[in-house]
Amino acid sequence: MTTFLPKDVQAGLDAARRATGRRRNRLAVEVDGQRYPVLRMWEKGFAVDIATVPMLRGLVDLYDGAHHLKRCLIVAASQEAFEMQYEFKQMTEASAEQPLDFERREDAPVALLARDLGI
């Protein structure tokens, strides 16, 4: 049995694989205000379509739809067929709250009430 495929058949298979990945995946990577779809993601990296996404480098944000998942520092790892694979050098979970630089006491008041001055 041969594993050789004509170029037009291989191109058709690659196009179908890209289209399937775009339809079922909501993951996206954002760089400089531009969002690009992520084809697949694993524990130490992710892959994007090499034909539609420029070379990425540095700090990026990962989104699942509108939900901000992570802020990542990435490097290009490898290129396979129609996808470019990137690996995480550093990954930080996104949070809606700003980090505190002090310890918050458990018995701390949650609000301040103004005194009634009778004015």
Rank of each mutant, 00 (worst) to 15 (best):
R104Y: 04
P54G: 11
L27G: 05
A94E: 14
R23C: 04
D64S: 07
R17D: 15
Y86N: 06
P109L: 03
F88I: 03
Q34V: 09
V75N: 13
F4S: 07
R71Q: 10
R26S: 01
W42I: 00
L39R: 03
A81F: 15
S95D: 15
A28T: 13
R17Y: 13
Y86K: 06
Q85N: 12
V9R: 15
L69S: 10
P99C: 05
I119V: 10
V60Y: 00
L113K: 03
A28G: 08
F46I: 04
A11N: 15
K89G: 00
E103G: 07
A81L: 13
G45Q: 09
D32L: 14
N25M: 08
G118C: 08
L62D: 01
Q98K: 14
S78V: 07
L56F: 02
Y63D: 08
R105M: 03
R104V: 01
E30N: 13
V53L: 04
K70F: 09
P37Y: 01
A11F: 13
E30S: 13
E43M: 15
L117P: 01
V75I: 01
A28W: 03
L112Q: 09
L100P: 00
G45D: 05
P54L: 05
Q79L: 12
Q98C: 15
P6W: 09
D32Q: 12
Y36H: 02
P6V: 03
V60K: 01
